[in-house]
């Protein structure tokens, strides 16, 4: 993994996910937290799922009554999020 992209806002509201997706590479991963978890339904993200690994924070999807049916989006709890930030070479926060 090269960069872990942490996305904190909904692409239905602003363009941070779009900026992230414009520079994300196949070695990178995306982690959705806060309102960023709403992106699990965003078309721009959905079309990249075959190429890029995407995670969503369980605590934050639960808080927002979101169910993840898409098997290509992985769910991870806070401890798994911590482990991913530790394993990543570096992180970039889109907020």
């Amino acid at each position: 993994m090269t960069i872990l992209h942490i996305v904190r806002s909904s692409a239905f509201n602003d363009n941070k996910l779009e900026l992230c997706l414009s520079i994300v590479t196949e070695h990178d991963s995306i982690f959705l937290i806060d309102d960023g978890v709403y992106n699990i339904a965003h078309p721009s993200l959905l079309k990249l799922l075959d190429r890029i690994e995407v995670f969503a924070l369980t605590e934050h999807t639960n808080a927002r009554a979101l169910n993840i049916d898409n098997k290509k989006i992985r769910t991870a709890d806070l401890s798994a999020f911590v482990a991913l930030t530790d394993n990543a070479e570096k992180t970039i926060t889109w907020q």
Partner: peptide, 23 residues
């Protein structure tokens, strides 16, 4: 982020989790 933004709570819980996981 400010104390009226829930994102700040995320930061706090992240910090707590880091320590809980031994970092």
């Amino acid at each position: 982020t400010s104390p009226t933004d829930n994102k700040t709570y995320t930061a706090l819980t992240f910090a707590q989790q880091l320590l809980a996981d031994g970092h």
